[in-house]
Design a protein around this nucleic acid. Structure first.
Lengths: 134, 134
DNA sequence: ATTTTTGTGTTAGAAAACATAACATTGATT
DNA sequence: AATCAATGTTATGTTTTCTAACACAAAAAT
């Protein structure tokens, strides 16, 4: 079952869940800025069928970093270079990627359902999606 | 620092981040169903300035639970009752809830920042859940 | 000291997503 | 047969997001 863990970890951070409006709030960037950074390949949000950008938590992470770098005086080229260097294609392991939608949903659902609640035991008020933020 | 952790946990789970379309995919419920459950007070998503529903991770959890209960044959009344009973106003402790947006953002930022570096995000434009896993 | 480039603002017009509200349908309860 | 509960469907209006274009100030290059 290790692969499940890995997959869900990956899924957690890469799931495109957030519309640009939320990302704007989370990052304090304007839509213009976010799109501009995308234009330069620094983020690659998914798209809905209707072509709307949907961002993952990783994307938010990246955008916050970009913001930091800009604050530190770097320009696009510098930031690009940093990310290029960071890319270690060596340690990119191929992951099992041939699950049906239904299966993936079921896995997600399972995880959501049986989350150990830290404190209470009887009252599992919520199964906790917050792992998505880890 | 413990309370920070707790607090951020709470914040993370209650932050209204997700539009209804994403919640639909996550829960496999229709918009109609989700709105109907809201009508019955089972979830209370936040609203944007423009009146669009924004759901928290807790909301998703709740919706998944509702789905389970319905599958188990409960009806609205039953589910309502369950949530009513679950509400133990005794253990509702007042939580420190007076952080500025900037502070919250910084906390979130910190958490996101010191994470293991993710994967590549290639551009993709697919429908269904499969676009979550690339 | 000009000229060019960069990063961002602003605007316009179109399309997508979402809202409410009403009516329809289906299966269970009375 | 009539009612009710949960959901589907449709109509219509508003909000959000999109792309593309032009504007502009500050930095960089010439």
């Amino acid at each position: 079952m290790k692969w499940v863990k890995l997959m869900t970890n990956r899924v957690r951070r890469t799931m495109p869940l957030l519309p640009i409006s939320i990302v704007m709030q989370l990052t304090e960037l304007t839509a213009r800025q976010i799109r501009y950074y995308e234009e330069h390949g620094l983020v690659s949000p998914a798209r809905t069928e209707g072509n709307k950008r949907m961002f993952s938590l990783n994307d938010v992470d990246t955008l916050l970093e970009i913001k930091d770098y800009l604050d530190q005086g770097l320009n696009m080229a510098g930031i690009k270079k940093i990310y290029d260097l960071r890319e270690t294609p060596a340690n990119e392991k191929a992951e099992p990627k041939n699950l049906s939608d239904a299966e993936l949903r079921r896995l997600l659902h399972e995880e959501l359902k049986h989350q150990a609640r830290p404190f209470e035991k009887g009252g599992f008020r919520q199964s906790d999606l917050s792992r998505f933020f880890n």
